[in-house]
Every structure is written in structure tokens, then in C-alpha cells.
């Protein structure tokens, strides 16, 4: 995980959770603002969908929109696109050393644990998606065949109110779950200075030295 968003460190779980909440709140406010400004569902939908894509690209990551700037490594686990030949020929004169260094760069790659985590969060994210789809189908059916239960105008509003967050979540939920649940990261310098915490062994040695 590249652990900075707008210069703010995202090493702790609490900061990542705040980021997730802020992103969804901003998206909600932007959608509400576009409704108040235009009174057009098309604008609201576009704000929500493009907003979700922007959040993914700039903060969450995972899907690789707008390059690879988000916190979560791209799920596809493929190397970044190589620059074109023309660009490469210019760069080769200027940055010969950097080119060779870049060849060894494997920071894009998800390790085995990250791949397992990616798959597991998709399993978790799939279930609310199914539930939301089921609710939408039920509402549509009720409005069509039993208008006395749910009138078609109420049902269409309800379906829209459910479908829009579902669309946003379909794009962002797995990344949000990863950011929400991943434990605190230890900075490399911290890891170097910290002594290993082995209370059992430490106590045993302490007991021996006292003896």
C-alpha cells in the first residue's frame, strides 16, 4: 500500500477509516448538491458515478483509474504500462540509470497475503450487492403487479435511492473494506528501532537472571 493521501499518512487504521467516511460523506454531499442545483437525476447519477471513480483513482485505489495513485494496489496485479518507444528513446538519454532501476520495481505486485485479502473482501462485498439486487427486484415486482402495496411512483424513487448507492458501492466497496479492516502499518524506521516483543521469552530470561 502506498500510504499517503494528499500528504496525510494513512499508516493507522483510524486515519484510513476517517478517509473512508470522509470520501463517502463528500460523495453524498456532492450528489445532494447536484440535486439541489439542477433537480435532474441525470446530474445526480453522473456526480455519484464519476465521483466514485475519482475517489477510487485518487484515494482508494484498487481499480487503477487515473493511473495508480490510490492506497490499495491495483487488484488486477499487472505491471504498470510501459512508456511508448518515442518517450522511452527520449528518457533513455536522460534517465538511463532510472530506467534500469525501474525494471526492478515490483511495488505494483500484490503478494500472496494481499491476493488472499483481495479475494476475501470481494466475497464479503458480493453479498450486500446480492441483497440490494433482491430488494430492487421485489420493489419493481410489487409496483408492477401489486400497486396497492407499493405505488409505482414510490417504488421508482425507492429503486433509484437503492440503485445509486449500490452502483457507487459496486465500484468502491472492496477497497473500502480493505482500508477499513487492514491493521496499523509499522513504519520501516519504527520497525528497525523497536525491539521484538516476546513477553514469554523475556520474562523467562528475566527470571533466569534473577535466579
Amino acid at each position: 500500500m502506498d500510504n499517503r493521501v494528499l500528504g496525510v499518512s494513512m499508516n493507522t487504521r483510524s486515519s484510513r477509516r476517517k478517509l473512508v467516511l470522509i470520501c463517502y460523506t463528500l460523495l453524498g454531499l456532492a450528489s445532494a448538491g447536484s440535486w439541489l442545483g439542477s433537480h435532474s437525476l441525470t446530474w445526480v447519477t453522473m456526480t455519484a458515478v464519476y465521483g466514485a471513480i475519482a475517489i477510487n483513482g485518487l484515494a482508494f485505489g484498487g481499480l487503477g483509474f487515473f493511473g495508480r495513485r490510490g492506497l490499495v494496489k491495483p487488484f488486477a496485479n499487472t505491471p504498470p504500462r510501459e512508456p511508448g518507444v518515442q518517450e522511452e528513446l527520449i528518457r533513455i538519454r536522460l534517465e538511463r540509470v532510472e530506467r534500469y532501476l525501474r525494471m526492478d520495481d515490483t511495488s505494483w505486485r500484490n503478494d500472496e497475503r494481499e491476493l488472499r485479502r483481495r479475494d476475501a473482501v470481494h466475497y464479503r462485498a458480493y453479498q450486500p450487492l446480492c441483497a440490494a439486487m433482491a430488494i430492487i427486484v421485489m420493489l419493481a415486482q410489487c409496483s408492477l403487479h401489486h400497486p396497492s402495496w407499493v405505488s409505482s411512483s414510490v417504488a421508482s424513487v425507492a429503486i433509484y435511492v437503492i440503485a445509486l448507492p449500490v452502483t457507487v458501492l459496486a465500484v468502491t466497496l472492496p477497497q473500502a473494506i480493505i482500508l477499513w479492516t487492514e491493521p496499523d502499518l509499522v513504519e520501516p524506521e519504527d520497525a528497525g528501532t523497536r525491539e521484538p516483543q516476546l513477553p514469554g521469552i523475556g520474562e523467562a530470561f528475566g527470571a533466569n537472571s534473577k535466579a
Partner: peptide, 19 residues
């Protein structure tokens, strides 16, 4: 479990396009 999770990952990927 890993197989199940991976299948859901692939299904999710397909689903985004289908929807």
C-alpha cells in the same frame, strides 16, 4: 475458502461489466 473467495473476485469483476 481461497477458491471460493477468488471465484467471487472474478464474478465481481464480470458483474461490474455486466451491470
Amino acid at each position: 475458502q481461497a477458491e471460493r473467495d477468488h471465484a467471487h473476485y472474478l464474478a465481481y469483476k464480470i458483474l461490474r461489466w455486466v451491470l
